[in-house]
Structure formats: C-alpha cells, structure tokens
Design a protein around this nucleic acid. Sequence first.
DNA 1: TAAAGGATAATA
DNA 2: ATTATCCTTTAT
Length: 183
Amino acid sequence: MKKLDHDFYVRNTLTVAQDLLGTLLVHHVDGVARVGRIVETEAYLGAHDLAAHSSKGITKRTQIMYGPPGVAYVYLIYGMHNCMNVVTEPEGNGSAVLIRALEPVANITGNTRGPGLLCKAMAIDRSLNGHDLMSEDFFIAAPDSHEHIAIVTRPRIGVDYAGDWAHELLRFYIEGNAFVSRP
DNA sequence: TAAAGGATAATA
DNA sequence: ATTATCCTTTAT
C-alpha cells in the first residue's frame, strides 16, 4: 500500500478524480485504522465552475480550496452532514474532488454510500478541515494490486442551481460497483 | 416528497 | 442582526 503524494494531487482535477477511483481512504481514530475504497468522486474545477464553492472567490470557507493540494476540505451541508473533498492542482486554483462513496474495507461501521454517510462512517468532521492527507493518521493510498477498473461518467448530483455546469459530466464511478450512491 | 438542521455569505 | 441558500439523508 503506497501513500499518494503531492505529485498525485497537483495534477489536473479531472485526472485526479478518475485516478482516485479504487484507491484507499485511511483514517486512524482511537488506534484503529478505518479503511474504505473510493468508488465514486466528483470534480469541482475552480472559480469558473459555478457548482464549486470556490466560484464565490476566496472566503473564510473556501480558503482551504485555494490552498495547497493534498489537503482535506471538509464542510457541513444542510446543517447536519459532513462532506469531504480533496484539494487539487497548484495552490490558488480553487479546485477539489468530492468523495461521494466508499466500499468498506476495514473497521467500517454503517453505510458509506453517499458523501454525508461516508464521513459519518469514517469519523470525518470539520475538525479535519485543512488536514494534510500526506499525514500518518489521515491519508489516501494506492492499493497493492490494481485490478482493471471501468469508469462511468455522469453529471454531478445536487447542483441544479449551477446553470449549464449542472449538466457537465464531472461525476465518476466504478462501473457495476454496489456501493455507488446513485446509478 | 418534505422536513430537518446549522453554518455560511450576502445584505443592512 | 437578519435572511436566503445549501455538493444530503431519513422518514413518511
């Protein structure tokens, strides 16, 4: 298992979003490693992407997205659920990849189909906002054996307010995987 | 299908 | 200080 490094995250957001499929999200909490395989992602491209939080410019909330790549951007949505993104591309771009669904691998309790649920199952909350994903207790790793993965491309979920950007094919998931949040 | 829920950003 | 809005989930 090899930890993903800066060079992985600094690349084009679309590339990172697709390459994250099949990788392992690891969070050490209370001495146990919770591990989930990423099976669904969405790309948020930056200031010009009206569906992205960063389209409002740099604010207290979005400054994480505009920071260096390879860190977690965790925010609260609808007053009750956490969502986790990974910042991509060089600092200042405002781009990120949303993790939408995981397949349980180790020490996972509860449902991981959907961004709010997976954060709950992985014990991810806003205290991890801005956390370095190249750290020892919270990171993403490439699996030892990379089986072939068929990637399906779809429009993003819940972004109808974003005009034309709502139709863009910026959601990716592993074809046929049972843990994808929506087909 | 609709209500829940709280932070966030814009407005004042 | 007040208000509209939200990258969702759960329960009816």
